[in-house]
Structures are given as structure tokens and as C-alpha cells.
Nucleic acid binder design. Structure first.
Length: 574
DNA sequence: GCCGTTTTCGGCCCGACTGTTTTCAGTCG
């Protein structure tokens, strides 16, 4: 049973308990358990029982339930709750403006148990017969069903970033003295965003009018003096919060989240006799503001250094900050090279020289051109002969672009049995080899783990490309155990990639952190197929920061000569 | 249901907006 399925069951229990109106803190315990499982980089099933029992947020009861799930693949408590409601009722909770109380009411009064039930009842005008429901609510529910049906939801962060940038710049033009910035999951650098949170500190209330009249607004979900929500064209929700200028720091902290980080921080405030909200940090006894104008000021008043937004997930950052042990995170400016990209020789859209010049313009000191290998026929992958020709062509480019060294590389397929797609004596003649899985994704966990371990055992492999194979919002990664793969990569001196393609970001934050903890080096690579995509390096760096990585953890922060020595050394060790 | 340098019991984050209310419950973040 995979972590995702275990987490889903805990989430469903939380939803069902909410419908029953159960204790909110019990519900929170199940939600937090689900998050812990989903974020756990190791397969829960493979953990020793003691390690499972030590997971944060798992006490006696949840520990027993987790053990039952691991041992039997089922949970009696979950099954029993599902007898009280039809499973399809959980879909109703995802509707905008519909929460557990409403769903429970609809089920009790009208026996509504699915989206279809709800829609026909609303269309027949049966909803506003219930006490507490009026015609407006009925209309809103119909609208929410309609929007839900159009499958709208999370966006890639890189896309959300672009949407936010235009909106923020529009608002800044209208409120020149205000501090306006995106907060929420976008500021934390999560890989996808459910909505856009924008903060305006010190802005006039009239900014709200401009916000709800923004040309790309499709529907206004709510409008107040300090908070408004709109649905942008295309179905993406944006929220604007306005606070006084002297609350700017507290509001930035509050609205950046994450929720778990904020709850933990607030707990710390409470223990010290303070109350923390979006307007400031206040002495509980006197009500006097202690901090709030700046974000570092809020953390400082709580006895902490400022914590970078990427770390605010309640994954140990508060303890590390308290111990003055936060890592000095890698920055985009630390990146010297880009070791994974394609050109028109295979499936890229620009030639070698265009890619090289674009990389140089971004400040890169070295790049590797890593074309596909033969088994990726669709992309025009190279066989041994073509790979050597490619290497010669790449090296001929050196000296033509001031300040840039071009390495001859290959992205070599890992065949289903773990062998590499090109012969060893060919790979040996290239400067850099990234090995990737592009086929047979459906192998079971053991087979895929063995496959990756076998690929690593080839002494010419310098890195594993997009190690989990996930595509954001489209497919989960293939099943395999990262822990032994990372441990073996560390032993052999091979790197694991953070692939910067905006719908991959693979490894993700949790996995990259685990890989580093197991001693593996990380390489951040764009896998660019066009010059513009070389700029996606920033998204990979964001993932690395969320993984707590420092410049020394990253292969391509090294100067070229150190990199060469490091690769060579890695090969001699193998 | 979890958790403990106040605690093995009694806490557990907090405020804004909407609709149907005549003082507030539900939802959201």
C-alpha cells in the first residue's frame, strides 16, 4: 500500500467525521496524520514498526490504525464510517461555499448524496425549502457545481507566478505607496498553487474596487473592505487582503503560511504570553503591539531569526531557527552550470549554438548538451555512432563563445531491465551522462528499484534524470524506493537531479531533502528544449531551497575544474 | 486524537465575509 493511498484514507476519515460534526481537534489529528504520511519520503509500509510509531502526530490510537492499514490494506473504522454516508458525498465538500455542515444538512433533509442529486434538487428549487437555505445559496450552489464540472483547480506554480506578476503590477500602478506582493503557496515556492494570495499593506480601501474590476475577473466571490476574492478568467481564484502599513510584516507572515507553520508559530507566541494575528504580535495581558511592521521583527520578537518562506512547512524549521541552525540556502546566483538540455539534433527546438549563447547570457559558465539516446526513437535519439559525432560537434563549439564551456553529454535511457541504452565504451567518451527512465513506467516497486540501482552501477552514469517520473497535475511518479537508490548514488558519487521543467520539478522538495540526508549530491538541471526554458533554473533552485539545500550540496554550483575533478573522481570510485 | 519546563486533563489559531439572520452560523484561508 503506497503512502498516497494511506493518506487518502485518513483524509476521508477526517471529511466523514466533519460531516458527523465530530470533535474538530480529532479531525485535525486525522488531517495532520494524512499530511505526515503524504510527505514521508520513505514508503510507510517499508518502515520498521518503531519508526512508524515515532511519526509525528501519531499517538496510541492512530498508530494502531496505521499498523492495521499497513498489515491488512484496510481500516475497519474507515469502512464503518463509509456505511453512514454514500462515498460520493465527499465530492460535495469540494464545492466552493459548501462545507460539512451544509452537506450534512442536505443529506439529512433531502437525502442528497452526490453531485447529481444536488444539482437536480437545486434545479427543482427544492433547496430553499430547507431552513437556513435561501434562493441565493441555491443559485451559488448551482454555479459552484458548474465550475466544478469544468475541472478547474490547481495550477503549476510557474503559471500562477506569471498570472500574479501581471495582476500585482497592475495593482502597484494604482497604489504607488503601498507594499503589494504575492504571498501564500506562491511565496513559499510550492510546486502547484490552488489560488493566488495577494497582500497590499498600506493601500487605500479603494484598491478593492480596482481589484474586483480587474479586466480578467470573471466573477466576484466576495468583496469587503479588507478582503476580496475573485475568480479569474480560466477559473483561477485570486484573493486580495488589505492591511494597514504598520501591520505589513505580521500580514506577510500570516498570509504566507503555511497553515501548519503558523499554528506552530502561534503556539510559540502563546507560550510567551503573546497573541499573533495578521495585524501584529500583541502582549496578551496588555494588548500592546510588540511587533508587526516587518516580518523579521515578528520572528525576532519570538526569539527567532527570520525564516525563509520556502522552509515554512513545519518540517523542523522552527526548531532549527531556535537552535540558530537554519541552513544558508542555495540561491540562483550560486548556479554556475546547466547539465541537461536538448537541441534540434533530437527533440529540442533550437540549435546548439543558440542554446549555448542563451545559457551564457544567463550567466552560466558551462553547460552540457545531453541529447536523447536511440531507444527514444520518437525524439530521434542517437545511437553510438551518432552520439560520438554529437560529441565532436559539441566540442567544436568550445572557444567560440566567450566565457562558456560546452560539455558533450547524453541523456541515456534506462532500459526496462536496468541496462543502459548505449554501450559503455561510447558513454566513456562523453563528458557527462544523465540516465533517465522514459519507458515501462508500470513496473512494480521492487523491479523499478532494482532497475534504477542497476543503472547506477554503470560507472559512466553521472546523474539520474527526473528520478521519479512524475508529471505535475497529470500522473504520479512510478513506484520505487528512493532511499536505497539515494544511498547507492551517494556511495558511487552519482548525483540525483532536480529537473526544472515546470511540470516535473523532480525530485520534489521532500525527496531531494531525503536524498541529501542519505549523502547523495543533487544536480539542478533545466532539461531545456528551447532557449527560454533555460530560465526555469529558478524553479529548480526553489525546490532545492524547500529541500533545505546549501550551495555545497549542489553539483552545478562548482567551478568547472572542480566539477570535472568531481565527475572523474566519481567514475574512479565506481 | 495528540500532547506535556504550567498540565496525564484540558487545552488545541484566528479573523473576514456572506446569507439569512434580528444576533449568528457556516465557510474560507
Amino acid at each position: 500500500m503506497d503512502n498516497f493511498s494511506i493518506a487518502r484514507i485518513f483524509r476521508e476519515i477526517a471529511d466523514l467525521l466533519e460531516l458527523k460534526g465530530d470533535n474538530p481537534f480529532k479531525i485535525r489529528a486525522y488531517r495532520s496524520a494524512a499530511d505526515t504520511v503524504a510527505d514521508c519520503p520513505d514508503s510507510i509500509v517499508s518502515l520498521a514498526p518503531e519508526a512508524r510509531a515515532a511519526l509525528p502526530g501519531f499517538g496510541k490510537d492512530l498508530g494502531k490504525k496505521l499498523a492495521e492499514l499497513v498489515e491488512t490494506g484496510e481500516l475497519a473504522y474507515h469502512r464503518q464510517l463509509l456505511t453512514e454516508f454514500p462515498p460520493s458525498i465527499l465530492d460535495l465538500l469540494k464545492l466552493q461555499g459548501v462545507g460539512p455542515k451544509t452537506v450534512a444538512l442536505l443529506h439529512r433533509e433531502l437525502n442528497i448524496g452526490s453531485l447529481d442529486d444536488l444539482e437536480s434538487a437545486a434545479r427543482a428549487g427544492r433547496l430553499h425549502a430547507i431552513k437556513g437555505m435561501g434562493p441565493k445559496k441555491e443559485a451559488l450552489i448551482l454555479q459552484a457545481i458548474d465550475e466544478r464540472r469544468q475541472a478547474k483547480g490547481r495550477r503549476l506554480t510557474a503559471e500562477a507566478h506569471d498570472t500574479a506578476a501581471v495582476l500585482v503590477s497592475h495593482l502597484r500602478d494604482l497604489a504607488l505607496d503601498a507594499e503589494i506582493l504575492p504571498v501564500g503557496s506562491l511565496r513559499r515556492g510550492c510546486d502547484t498553487c490552488g489560488d493566488l494570495d495577494i497582500l497590499a499593506a498600506g493601500a487605500d480601501a479603494s484598491l478593492m474596487d480596482s481589484f474586483v474590476r480587474y479586466p480578467l475577473v470573471e466573477r466576484v466571490l466576495g468583496r469587503g473592505d479588507t478582503k476580496s476574492s475573485v475568480l479569474l478568467r480560466g477559473g483561477f481564484q485570486a484573493d486580495l487582503r488589505v492591511v494597514p502599513a504598520d501591520s505589513a510584516g505580521a500580514a506577510m507572515q500570516y498570509f504566507t503560511g503555511s497553515k501548519a507553520h503558523n499554528i506552530a508559530l502561534r503556539d510559540r507566541a502563546m507560550q510567551r504570553g503573546y497573541k499573533l494575528n495578521e495585524y501584529g504580535l500583541f502582549d496578551t495581558a496588555t494588548g500592546v503591539a510588540v511587533a508587526g511592521a516587518t516580518e523579521p521583527g515578528v520572528y525576532e520578537a519570538l526569539g527567532l531569526p527570520w525564516i525563509p518562506p520556502e522552509l515554512r512547512e513545519n518540517r523542523g524549521e522552527l526548531a532549527a531557527a531556535d537552535a540558530r541552525a537554519l541552513p544558508a540556502l542555495v540561491e540562483l546566483a550560486d548556479i554556475r552550470g546547466d547539465l541537461h538540455m536538448h537541441t534540434t539534433r533530437t527533440d529540442g527546438r533550437a540549435d546548439m549554438e543558440s542554446m549555448a549563447r542563451a545559457a551564457r547570457a544567463l550567466g552560466r559558465e558551462y553547460i552540457a548538451i545531453t541529447e536523447h539516446s536511440q531507444s527514444l526513437a520518437m525524439a530521434g535519439g542517437l545511437d553510438e555512432h551518432a552520439a560520438l559525432e554529437h560529441a565532436a560537434a559539441v566540442r567544436a563549439l568550445n572557444g567560440r563563445i566567450e566565457g562558456l564551456t560546452v560539455l558533450a553529454g547524453i541523456e541515456c535511457d534506462i532500459l526496462p531491465d536496468g541496462r543502459l541504452d548505449l554501450a559503455g565504451d561510447c558513454l566513456a567518451q562523453l563528458d557527462y551522462v544523465v540516465a533517465s527512465v522514459h519507458s515501462a513506467f508500470n513496473q512494480d516497486e521492487t523491479a523499478m528499484t532494482d532497475r534504477l540501482l542497476k543503472a547506477l552501477s554503470c560507472r559512466w552514469v553521472d546523474a539520474l534524470g527526473h528520478p521519479t517520473g512524475r508529471i505535475l497535475l497529470r500522473r504520479e511518479g512510478y513506484a520505487f524506493r528512493l532511499e536505497p537508490v539515494a544511498t547507492e548514488a551517494a556511495r558511487l558519487g552519482a548525483a540525483l537531479e532536480i529537473n526544472c521543467q515546470i511540470d516535473r520539478l523532480d525530485l520534489n522538495d521532500v525527496n531531494a531533502r531525503l536524498a541529501r540526508e542519505r549523502g547523495a549530491r543533487i544536480v539542478i538541471s533545466t532539461d531545456a528544449h528551447a532557449p527560454a526554458a533555460l530560465g526555469w533554473m529558478r524553479w529548480g533552485v526553489t525546490v532545492a531551497r524547500r529541500a533545505w539545500l546549501r550551495p555545497d550540496d549542489i553539483l552545478n554550483t562548482m567551478p568547472l575544474e572542480s566539477l570535472r575533478r568531481s565527475l572523474r573522481r566519481a567514475r574512479h570510485q565506481a
